[in-house]
């Protein structure tokens, strides 16, 4: 039996001694209602599986055009990175950098970082290079990885362009759509407490 976990509510600072949670249950703070901890089944395996799926989809989503615009003989295709480069060339550097970070770099770093941590942990090893810093970093950038918002942006753009020209969804848009669900699944199956526990073993 695991020892109770000492935890302070991150929204109101109340202290708790949490016993191991039963299946599919959630512990909430009795004072402010914040979620303290959520039980996650096979967290490590599931998160690892979703992460691998996410990485494959991410590569596909970036390698192929996600929208084609057709008007007469003219065809214009766009991948994720072309929009960023176009903005940059127009002098909107700050916006280009923001879009690059939130829709490409941070999601990529997050997925790669999780793979780097979870793969060794799965075979009971400790990642060799600064695992704590890596995990801390990917948790910090998490709010800034906004692929699902980008997806909404794609949908709005498709409607907006519909009047102007013919819009044809490319291969990438489908892997993009699935990727959104895979990322959500990875995030909800991940148990940060468990990962911190495992990372701690060798220290």
């Amino acid at each position: 039996m695991k020892a109770p976990l000492t935890i302070a509510c991150h929204e109101c600072d109340l202290l708790y001694e949490l016993p191991p949670l039963p299946e599919r249950s959630v512990a909430k703070c009795c004072r402010c209602g914040a979620v303290l901890q959520r039980h996650k089944r096979d967290s490590l395996d599931r998160t690892l599986a979703w992460t691998i799926a996410g990485l494959i989809l991410f590569v596909v989503a970036n390698a192929f055009p996600f929208l084609d615009l057709k008007k007469g003989d003219l065809v214009r295709q766009t991948t994720l990175i072309t929009g960023v480069m176009e903005l940059y060339q127009q002098g909107m550097r700050s916006v280009a950098v923001l879009v690059f970070l939130t829709s490409i770099l941070f999601p990529a770093v997050q997925l790669a970082g999780l793979l780097y941590l979870l793969l060794p942990l799965k075979v009971k090893l400790l990642p060799w290079w600064k695992p704590a810093s890596v995990f801390r970093f990917i948790q910090r950038i998490h709010p800034w990885a906004m692929m699902e918002v980008f997806m909404v942006g794609i949908l709005v753009s498709m409607v907006k362009l519909g009047k102007l020209a013919k819009v044809v969804p490319g291969i990438a848009i489908y892997s993009f759509a699935i990727l959104i669900f895979v990322l959500a699944a990875a995030a909800s199956s991940m148990d940060p407490h468990l990962i911190w526990d495992r990372l701690e073993i060798d220290r």
Binding site: T78, G83, L98, V149, V152, G153, I154, A165
Partner: peptide
């Protein structure tokens, strides 16, 4: 979710080069 419009601008700029 407020980032939506920033992304819409990015996509329009990239696509509408006719």
């Amino acid at each position: 979710w407020s980032m939506t419009d920033v992304y819409v601008v990015t996509i329009l700029v990239a696509l509408v080069r006719l």
